[in-house]
């Protein structure tokens, strides 16, 4: 058996520490100047920092030893299968489920449900995001098979997003564009990226580095459009509801 579990763990521990320590000092600065929280609250926050540190380090290490090598090896195998069109549905399913395991996505969807007072349910937002990312990975597979420049997707994509904003429910606008940044976390940027680099490296005429880059850009774009579309549906439903109520009150006043 040749299993490497803790390979490069020091590196991960170091990286997460350098990311978290500045945040901690910023908090201390604010604590001294503005917040002046009591000791018990401070303890809670300290525990929070330690848990975040341990959790993120463990998560990243798991991605590195588990998902990263499997992604690139799977990519190389999948790139050589006979029915290459199979890659498109496989891409959709992988994109759909990978986003579930993205840490920031969970934070965003919960925050949105909390702040919107349940108006945008967590599960609904999650499925909408997943669907968008699934589609974008499927499209990226098509792109890698046929070789279409990324431009043809990105420019019309953003233009389309900015147009449907007009028809979408306002609450959804900020959330939609936030989702774009959130969807491209460590799971997609490592696992799916390594899968793509694997496929590109065995497909003729593809540059692994450049084609991989383009994929992340699409993953950032897709949830924007899918969440905005959800906003359009919400607004239509509400409009219908409103119209119905208007009709009803009219009917009532006619009765009298």
């Amino acid at each position: 058996m040749n299993i490497k579990i803790f390979e490069g763990f020091w590196h991960v521990l170091f990286d997460v520490a350098t990311a978290l320590i500045p945040l901690f000092f910023l908090f201390l600065l604010f604590q001294l100047v503005f917040l002046k929280l009591p000791w018990e609250k401070l303890q809670d926050i300290l525990v929070g920092f330690i848990l975040t540190y341990a959790g993120l380090a463990l998560f990243l290490q798991g991605v590195h030893i588990g998902f990263l090598p499997v992604g690139s090896m799977m990519g190389e195998k999948l790139g050589t299968i006979e029915n290459t069109w199979l890659l498109v549905p496989i891409g959709f399913v992988l994109g759909f489920v990978a986003i579930y395991a993205e840490p920031a996505v969970s934070v965003l969807t919960h925050q949105v449900e909390k702040v919107s007072g349940g108006y945008i349910p967590q599960k609904l937002l999650l499925y909408t995001l997943s669907f968008g990312v699934g589609l974008s990975i499927a499209l990226s597979m098509v792109r890698i098979l046929i070789g279409i420049p990324i431009w043809y997707f990105v420019v019309p994509g953003y233009l389309f997003a900015l147009i449907i904003v007009r028809f979408s429910n306002k609450t959804f606008t900020s959330v939609a564009f936030d989702s774009g940044g959130v969807a491209t976390g460590p799971m997609t940027a490592t696992f799916i990226l390594s899968l793509f680099v694997g496929i590109a490296s065995v497909t003729e005429g593809r540059d692994p580095l450049l084609d991989g880059f383009g994929m992340v850009a699409l993953v950032a774009l897709a949830p924007i459009i899918s969440v905005l579309t959800l906003g359009v549906i919400y607004r239509r439903k509400e409009q219908e509801q409103y119209d119905k109520e208007q009709l009803r009150t009219k009917a009532h006043s006619n009765d009298r």
Partner: peptide, 30 residues
């Protein structure tokens, strides 16, 4: 071998996510 290593990775990702989300909820978010 590779597949077993993946499964161990899944375990670490899961444990890591639990700790991370708990920590974020009492630390970074507030």
């Amino acid at each position: 071998d590779m597949f077993f290593q993946f499964l161990i990775g899944v375990g670490m990702v899961g444990a890591g996510l639990v700790l991370f989300l708990l920590g974020v909820n009492i630390g970074l978010l507030p």
